[in-house]
Amino acid sequence: MYDIIIIGAGPAGLTSAIYACRASKKVLILEAKSYGGQIINTLDIENYPGEAHISGFDFATKLYNQAKDLGAEILFEKAVDINVIDNLKEVITTKNTYMSKAVIIATGSENRKLGLPNEDELVGRGISYCATCDGAFYRNKNVAVVGGGNTAVEDALYLADIASKVYLIHRRNEFRGEQSTVNHLKEKNNVEFIYNSNVTKLNENERLESIEVTNKDGLVKTIDVAGLFVAVGKIPENQNFAKLVNLDESGYVKSGEDCTTNVAGIFVAGDNRIKEVRQLVTATSDGAIAAINAVKYINDL
């Protein structure tokens, strides 16, 4: 029996663990893959207060060790369901069942896919969801980025220095990304903007060879690229808890800044919660708030 079970060992979940352990609670973290979450893909974090430069891997490892040293237990099992039994919570994983007084859901989000038929089999053979991870494989090759947010614009800028040509394909005619980054990108002479268009087909010969792009007037063209970087947003990983916890139409947990949910004793922290700003610092902030409120909830039981 645990006081608090935290689902997810990203920055939000690990921060929750730190706060909960420091409040002398017995904490179990359940993680499906490996600790750190999405931040491990970041080469250099430059916007976390107090750390001018740190790699995502180093940051995650420091956070993980801090939580473990304070007494958090961590098991690498995927949580698939939560049941409420009187005042207690039963968390079911692919291997076991664990009981606790409170649960913090900090599962984060995963990359949204384009949804094209051969997309999955081309991952690692031309399709990528992480420019900083895979950009180096496309030196002096033609690549495309699809998307219109900050990630897409930053990916295109990063790739412009590596690839010979970058196509940025966006379904609208303006970018939601930061204007300064967009301006930087417009100064690059090897970046071509393709507006009002979607990627509609992936042509392959073992590897990705070209993409079919269709614009809003139905005009189709084929572009030869060795790589396509997909940056069309994220999907919150809340599906397993949807029967219990209220989600909005995009799948984010309905919760305010207090990180509470519609279920007493179940809290949410990080990117899988409804919020305006999804940054490392807001994830760790959520982690602290969720843990403090979970501790308060347990002490009042």
Binding site: A32, K33, S34, I40, F76, V123, G124, R125, G126, S128, C130, C133, D134, F137, Y138, E206, R207, A226, G227
Partner: peptide, 26 residues
Amino acid sequence: NVSSIPCLVLFDSGEEIKRNVGLISK
């Protein structure tokens, strides 16, 4: 044909039999 890492390739007696791209659990 590796263009995304981490990439695990399993060989059996010299033949590629399985491949996984991306981080996976133990």
